[in-house]
Design a protein around this nucleic acid. Sequence first.
RNA 1: UGGGGUAUGGUGCAACGGCAGCACGCCUGACUCUGGAUCAGGUAAUCUAGGUUCAAAUCCUGGUACCCCAGCCA
Length: 558
Amino acid sequence: MASEEGAKSLNFLEEIITKDLENGVVKKVITRFPPEPNGYLHIGHAKSICLNFGLAKQFGGECNLRFDDTNPAKEETEYVESIMEDVKWLGFEWANLRYASDYFDQFHKWAIDLIKAGKAYVDDQSADEIRLKRGTLTKPGEDSPHRNRSIEENLDLFMRMTNGEFEEGSRVLRAKIDMSSSNLNMRDPVIYRILKRSHHRTGDKWCVYPMYDFAHGYEDAIEGVTHSICTLEFQDHRPLYDWFIENVDVPHVPHQYEFARLNLTYTLMSKRKLLELVTTGIVSGWDDPRMPTICGFRRRGYTPESIRRFCKEIGVAKADSLVDVELLQHCLREELNKTAQRGMAVLRPLKVVLENWPEGFVDELEAENNPEDAGAGSRKIRIGKEIYIERDDFMEEPVKGFFRLAPDKEVRLKYAYIIKCNDVVKDENGEVVELRCTVDMDSRGGDAPDGRKIKGTLHWAWAGEAVRARVNLYGHLFTLRNMNDMEEGKDYKDYLDPNSLVVIEDALVEPILASAKPMDRFQFLRHGYFCADYESSPERPVFNLTVSLKDSWGKQNK
RNA sequence: UGGGGUAUGGUGCAACGGCAGCACGCCUGACUCUGGAUCAGGUAAUCUAGGUUCAAAUCCUGGUACCCCAGCCA
């Protein structure tokens, strides 16, 4: 059975949808991605986006982008713009662009319907009193003294709340459900609160705003959402979601399904903490390449395709999980290996003088643009008497297994010549500052004329035309693999990695790299994938490390 | 402690009563003008105790562990 082609398994959401479609319960799948515009989207949202848009597409349905903007105290237009940009960048198109605030009038009518049906009441208790009387996990709550007001009085009070006659916090509208429910969400939840705030879209039209639980199902009902997909923490809210839908006359009955949110190793996913990283200046902004935000990944050089691929690879289930960030990097490398232009960059240059190189001679050689892509062609690279190699590619006293350059050892310069180290020049501190080598002038192109095998191949930069560049080396922002496992009494700031950004000011890159346009992606040979930063220019190229190459030598020597 | 969830290699996801599989990671080896890539191979798992059954990751019963819920946040 496992050998059957096309018998690939469905995840639990696909199973539900497939059944609903087969049973005719649903004719067309409608989903929605419902962010609150109070922060930037991160990789966890990407999972939700891929699910909602992906499922709709897969089953021939539609997905809306809907801003859940029911709380004017937290929401801003800056965020809605960034969210739209990020969703588009990820490669998705929404069928409709909606806002919860589009429906405020309808919500208000339904609230009145609930009051008229004796299913909602105005409570004059303070927030503290309400909290105290809600009970605890093990003790039932107590009824509010205002629970049994007449419908007329409730109607009057709610209209006066709406008209702004009362102060913020002085009264709320609550659903009348069950103060002794074992599900705390059912203990007469607040559905409208007074907020004398200007809303980013409705301005000062409203003094009262609906709560999430009240609004969300109605938003889905209005839009005809068939499968309202959210994260696990809303499981307890589902009975409430259903209660609101059942107790007024809605045009459509949506259903809520929950999946486990994404957690990534060495990564923080809390919007609140990410905001704090930005506002305290720990990172340079929402798009700092170390941030797990979509715009952070974008600036870091990640591709939308790799993120989508990652979201597909991790699957979807209901068990809490922690995904290795290596999987994300794998998806990225796999794509970039096939698409990235290659170039040579020496990050920590060590000068090499080719002693027997003809004075004044400059040779021009052929270099592949991408060995994985025959269509990528080749380019000319030039070399002369003075070059630079990577400091790490030379060891005066080579350790076992080191097959790069060392005294009396031979090595190949990629696409160029075989060289041998004769002398080591040191400064007064004993530090190696220059190497004197001889070239095998018959090895032009890199092959030894006598067929001898050269194990090591080094990347290099010709002093004559290398361009000085800044390179930002990024690593994990945090040192803790599971950021949900912080020690008692410690803060996420205690786990910041001081080496998450290492700036190299004096890297040397070949001309093709120097001429990069912002956001161009490259593989720096033997280093990793880099992209030109937004601030990069031909005079002062700046590159961000996207992800390093896998490095079995470096790993072995850790 | 009430309620709602979840337990399969190191990690994530499959297997829907019939040989526990895929991917990442890790480890070998081959190949290589990137210690990359590629290719070949390997490592490693059903939370626990009972029960039903010819047969249980799957069904039943009892435990255990972990996550979520006491916002006028979403």
